[in-house]
Design a protein around this nucleic acid. Structure first.
Lengths: 241, 241
DNA sequence: TGTACATCAGTGAACGCGCGTTCACTGATGTAC
DNA sequence: TGTACATCAGTGAACGCGCGTTCACTGATGTAC
């Protein structure tokens, strides 16, 4: 055979995808902890032992799902930011935050898989680290560009002194935030990065509360709170309105 | 028998407690989804069917654990705030936030049980609603008292206009935040409450990231970031330094 | 205080179920000459 | 183009395990008279 893809190769790639798709469907029904190879095989009309030609164990299937989820979220955020011109930092910030929430709302069980409680007995291998950083790198890029173009200047309101620029952080936070900045937003001061990290954790806290039911009976539906908060955090991070 | 407690009653109360304690121990090892009545019984030297004298089903045991966890967290926050005099709003805020984190770090699996991904197939009954609101009521009380004593006045920095007081929120957020305020911080304006809610979601987002491993390799150990952020959010909420 | 009866905790066997993983196998697909 | 061999996907049976829940039972504790 030629063209670097034999029929066997193509069949294998396709079935691998179908296995992951079915596993994702079962995540929604039963959660990651109860993801069952036998149930996946059953649904695909295969015998359970056949799956072992595709994934050496249940945990490897889980790992693949986790990596896919991080990648899907990261890609959606990247796309959303790329659709806004670099000169409009605040709009890019908004686009990034809303992309993260939209993806989470559309894929709540995959969101839970990566940002919810860890699956007991499952130890995430090193291959998940890079995809996990992808979404954070997007907001880092937004801050980096905004800083470079002078859009990222000060505290939260007109008339206020340019706080984060001059702010000093206690150790070891200064070092930690500096390293994060070096990794995803080189040139951005540690104190500015630290504010970005506060906003970043706020974003995921808010999404988790929405998806995991903490807003039932109070901030539900959460769209208005979300949109308002994203702007509040943009102010806080120092993005010019 | 008299004194309202027969020997049977005492034995029953004690064993109920032991069952929950053992179940809590197993949460740590296996997670909520795999909490097993049989394993709990085995560890207590009982036969599995005996547990049905105490909890009518596995889900009822889970519910009891959830309620206990909310109550334990709420009580710890209440105690921490009560230890600081009402006139010192910012210190109470700090005390509350640190109490929440301290409890979460000390009981990571119980934290995951209530603030992590929902247990698949388990529907939380109404009895969990009141205990769930307990911790939120603590921060509401802090804001309420600070507002009443005039400590809760403005935005984040000296020289800045008193933003949240005059801020107007879009609907339906204004209504939602107003209802939350009416419930846990009567008299506090909706816009001020909304800022409190932003800080509240940030708090849990940060704790979840720490406990669920998102800070590994960056903000770990997280104590410095946490302490700094709590103060940042106190500024943001409008608590005078 | 003593007896007769009711309540309740805990037992042990059973029902019916699902799980991850291994293994020897058949038969189709791909490769080298 | 044709044949001989190697690779691989998928099968079906089996291993050993754990689970939640029900049920008829024994024996201890509590209650009423």
């Amino acid at each position: 055979m030629s063209a670097s893809q034999t029929a066997r190769d193509r069949a294998r790639a396709e079935l691998t995808g179908e296995i992951k798709a079915e596993a994702r469907r079962q995540l929604a029904a039963a959660g990651a902890a109860q993801l069952s190879l036998r149930a996946v095989a059953r649904e695909l009309g295969m015998v359970s032992s056949a799956l072992y030609r595709y994934f050496p164990s249940r945990d490897d299937l889980l790992t693949a799902l986790i990596i896919d989820a991080y990648d899907a979220l990261g890609e959606q955020a990247e796309r959303a930011v790329a659709a806004v011109s670099p000169g409009r930092g605040r709009d890019r910030w908004r686009a990034c935050c809303h992309a993260v929430r939209d993806w989470a709302v559309a894929h709540p069980h995959e969101y839970a898989l990566i940002y919810g409680s860890p699956v007991p007995g499952y130890q995430a291998p090193i291959q998940t680290v890079a995809p996990a950083a992808r979404a954070a790198a997007v907001i880092g890029g937004v801050l980096h560009d905004a800083w470079a173009t002078g859009e990222l200047t000060a505290g939260t309101r007109p008339g206020e002194p340019p706080a984060p620029r001059s702010e000093t952080l206690p150790e070891p936070l200064a070092g930690q935030a500096g390293l994060v900045a070096a990794a995803i937003a080189p040139g951005v001061p540690a104190a500015v990065m630290a504010r970005g990290l506060v906003a970043w954790t706020q974003l995921f806290g808010m999404i988790s509360f929405e998806l995991f039911g903490q807003f039932v009976g109070s901030l539900e539906p959460a769209a208005a709170f979300f949109a308002w908060t994203v702007d509040q955090m943009a102010d806080y991070a120092g993005l010019r309105a």
